[in-house]
Design a protein around this nucleic acid. Structure first.
Length: 579
RNA sequence: GCGCCCGUAGCUCAGCUGGAUAGAGCAACGGCCUUCUAAGCCGUGGGUCAUAGGUUCGAGUCCUAUCGGGCGCGCCA
């Protein structure tokens, strides 16, 4: 059910009947104020300009053409030509029938399922995951869950960084550690950051180490068995680290989704050869470069895109072209969605241009690079800890659970110790995820321990608390999701809840189109907030409530519970019956 | 130098294809627990939407310039 689409379709038909072109913008939106009804149609004003008529008169003609009697109790023209639609309560109630018994809730069927490749998380295996990796990982995962819930075929791709030049240095260092008889997991790679720092220090200071490192990169990439073995050892251990973080975050990435940079190695030379043959790549200053006139500066100097280094080495540009080919042809993607930080925006623009020219992307395939802003410190400068390092993701998550536990112990005194630990985990992790997911993807954002670990206001615990309140009612009433009763929307709070419940599809569509889960966060917060108001204003299990009204309110509560639970699940946030 | 992103309340942020009197949360202040979980609810105060022009019936949203911040621009990823 998508009320906005329904209204838009009806408006469009009415516009065509009045002689307007079929592509006229109907401009159906949600009303900004209760006085303006539930939805408003704003298209009459722009259309009037097209027909050179009076907008108010056109609005009146439109209203006469529109047949909304079944769904609207009031259709009013206001101001210069706004059409305000107030929906009928019985119509709203009818739209919700059966939703609680349907795993898709109020969603309609997906008319054209797509194959969508989603590239997200992509940690650099040379280093431990830090807070900067949070965004790509959980935004990507939320979008993936939404697409799957909607009914698209999703192929997850974890484009792990396992093939860069720093791996020569890392395996050279690892070789020496192992030679010294040090246990791999317990000592050598327990802390990837320390390991990296040690290796870097030797690379900078120790005579001969840098040369050996460079030699090892070449050997590794050309298939030398000894280097491959050491590298594999390092990669396996490093993946274990990211696995733990994924598990804690409830991120749906597994080993089967790993498609690391190294996996494209064999495709690189043929791609570069192809670019040369097509005349796209030319030699320049010893390297092979594709010059892009589309991205030229004011003087007409084209933007260079290096696909092969002097000496023959390949770069991430080449790998990303290979990824285009693999996803478009082997995986048969209709759409490719990539989550990385905004600094790579130019790079991906170049990749798409070159891939399309070279035929590495089929024409119909959408290529969406979804950037997100840089993480800033509370001083507004790029984020660094006091020691100049980064905050490890694992540490942030641990701290979140510790802080949540303190709150839970203070507020949830009638839970067992095990229940408290479980609630603390869900609240702590949920808070971190919600804090990040609820922000607009594109702007830079400020990293703050306190903001990220806040449990009051528009936070995950607020939504989780709303869920426990509904659960409490259903538990006390002795019913579960299979309970069915007719809905009667009497109070304003009840009607508003119904409208909000029916807005799930609208919200999901917007989230999937632009890969912006913050809209789902807003939606769920508003749903919870409206439920809280309903909870305060509309008693359910108290004395003197008519049985029909009580059952109707229980029905509404079940719909809120399912939508909240499902919605939070789409964000990868867990709920609980009590807290 | 050129390019991309951003600038909304004291703070952190919403604001969907341009729409009516710009919304939340935090912080501040005032109410509400013998009645479905007070991690809550109800209310008050707080804004020249960076600045100046422009397009439009209508601009936080589109265009231009300026200021401020972040980032990117040939062999790292």
């Amino acid at each position: 059910m998508n009320i906005k689409e329904l209204l838009s379709a009806k408006t469009q038909a009415a516009m065509v009947a009045l002689g307007l072109p079929a592509d006229t913008n109907t401009a159906v939106t949600i009303s900004t104020k209760v006085e303006f009804g539930d939805y408003q149609i704003n298209g009459a004003m722009a259309a009037a300009k097209l027909l050179k008529t009076n907008p108010r008169a056109l609005a009146e003609q439109l209203v006469q053409q529109l047949d909304l009697a079944d769904m609207a109790e009031k259709v009013e023209i206001a101001g210069p030509g706004f059409i305000n639609v107030t929906l009928r309560k019985d119509w709203l109630a009818a739209q919700l029938v059966g939703a609680s018994q349907n795993p898709r809730l109020t969603l309609s069927a997906n008319p054209a399922p797509q194959t969508v490749v989603v590239d997200y998380s992509a940690p650099n295996l040379a280093k431990e995951m830090h807070v900067g990796h949070l965004r790509s990982t959980i935004i990507g995962d939320a979008v993936v869950r939404c697409l799957e819930f909607w009914g698209d075929k999703v192929i997850r791709q974890n484009h792990m960084g396992d093939w860069g030049t720093q791996f020569g240095m890392l395996i050279a260092h690892l070789e020496d550690k192992l030679a010294a008889g040090i246990d791999l997991e317990q000592v050598a790679l327990a802390d990837l950051e320390d390991f990296y720092r040690e290796a870097k220090k030797r690379f900078d200071d120790e005579a001969g180490f840098a040369d050996k490192s460079r030699d090892y990169v070449v050997k590794l990439q050309s298939g030398d068995a000894h280097c491959q073995k050491l590298w594999q050892l390092f990669i396996d251990t490093s993946i274990k680290h990211s696995d733990e973080v994924y598990k804690t975050l409830k991120v749906t990435l597994g080993h089967e989704h790993i498609k690391p940079e190294s996996a494209y190695n064999a495709m690189l030379q043929p791609i570069v050869d192809g670019l040369k043959q097509q005349g796209l790549a030319v030699e320049s200053e010893g390297a092979l470069v594709v010059f892009l006139q589309e991205l030229a500066d004011k003087e007409g100097n084209p933007s260079p895109f290096i696909v092969q280094k002097t000496g023959g080495g390949f770069l991430y540009a080449t790998t990303d072209l290979a990824a285009c080919q693999y996803r478009s042809f082997d995986l048969a993607a209709d759409r490719i969605v990539i989550f990385t930080d905004a600094r790579q925006a130019l790079h991906f623009k170049q990749v798409e241009l070159v891939a399309r020219k070279a035929g590495l992307l089929k024409d119909h395939v959408a290529y969406d690079h979804c950037p997100f802003g840089t993480m800033m410190g509370e001083d507004g400068k790029p984020f660094k800890t006091r020691t100049g390092g980064t905050v490890k993701l694992a540490e942030l998550l641990e701290e979140a659970v510790v802080r949540a536990k303190a709150v839970v112990e203070q507020k949830s005194t009638d839970l067992s110790a095990e229940e408290m630990a479980e609630v603390a985990r869900k609240v702590g992790i949920g808070a971190v995820k919600f804090a990040d997911l609820s922000k607009n993807r594109t702007s830079d954002y400020v990293f703050s321990w306190d903001a990220m670990l806040s449990f009051e206001g528009a936070t995950a615990p607020y939504l989780q608390y709303a869920y426990t309140r509904v659960s409490g009612i259903l538990r006390r009433a002795g019913i579960n999701e299979s309970f069915v009763a007719p809905l009667q929307l009497v109070e304003e709070q009840e009607k508003q809840l119904a409208v909000k419940l029916l807005r799930l599809e609208e919200t999901l569509q917007a989230v999937m189109k632009d890969a912006v889960p913050n809209l789902l966060c807003n939606y769920l917060y508003e749903l919870s907030s409206q439920f809280m108001s309903f909870y305060e204003a509309c008693p359910i299990l108290k004395e003197g409530i008519e049985p029909d009204l009580k059952n109707s309110r229980l029905m509404l509560s079940i719909l809120v519970a399912s939508t909240l639970k499902q919605g939070l699940d789409l964000l990868g946030i867990e709920v609980m019956e009590r807290m």
